[in-house]
């Protein structure tokens, strides 16, 4: 069972590597049904298009940011999933791109995956990642006139816990 399922993961990686030999930096099979792919940030829209049209990953489950202050990077994660392709319906493909921490800009994938709309707005608000080409990049969750840095960055520290 695991042999068969692992080959499916390798097939996805193989297809992506064959199509984008220079954009895919690193691939990893976390376990059955989970594939992590690190890619170069400039190719995000092409990869998304390929994932949607050729591989059948027609939606994203979420877009997450991860702050890496030691590497001075912000990582953007796309969790791609599929409804239409029955063969890969159980997969979560995690696409990762690293952006510079002082000026995080990446192209928006809303034109490819419409489901990323609110997720990208949230990542913009929480990490300050600018998604170029997003139709409506506004703040979503925090106060209307939220001042200060994006709250999910690791620099923002809470006051010491345990105080009343």
């Amino acid at each position: 069972m695991s042999q068969v399922s692992l080959s499916r993961e390798e097939a996805i990686i193989g297809q992506l590597k064959a199509r984008f030999p220079e954009a895919i930096e690193e691939t990893k099979i976390d376990r059955a049904r989970r594939v992590t792919i690190h890619f170069e940030k400039d190719h995000v829209q092409e990869i998304a298009m390929f994932m949607r049209d050729e591989l059948g990953f027609d939606h994203v489950k979420g877009v997450a940011g991860v702050d890496l202050p030691t590497q001075k990077k912000i990582e953007v994660l796309y969790f791609a999933g599929s409804y239409s392709n029955a063969e890969v319906q159980d997969f979560i493909v995690i696409l990762k791109a690293k952006l510079p921490r002082d000026n995080p800009i990446i192209a928006s994938v809303v034109s490819v995956w419409e489901s990323a709309h609110f997720h990208e707005r949230e990542t913009f608000e929480m990490f300050g990642v600018k998604f170029e080409g997003h139709p409506d990049l506004r703040k979503l969750l925090t106060l209307d006139n939220w001042e200060g840095p994006p709250p999910m960055l690791k620099d923002i520290k809470f006051p010491e816990m345990g105080q009343r």
Binding site: D58, H59, V60, Y83, S84, Q89, E114, S115
Partner: peptide, 25 residues
Amino acid sequence: DAKKLGVVGPVLRASGVKYDVRKVE
């Protein structure tokens, strides 16, 4: 539209897509 918008759960299944994590994974 349901597939494109990436909705989940009962909303997705009411639109005819058979997708449930209990079966899928």
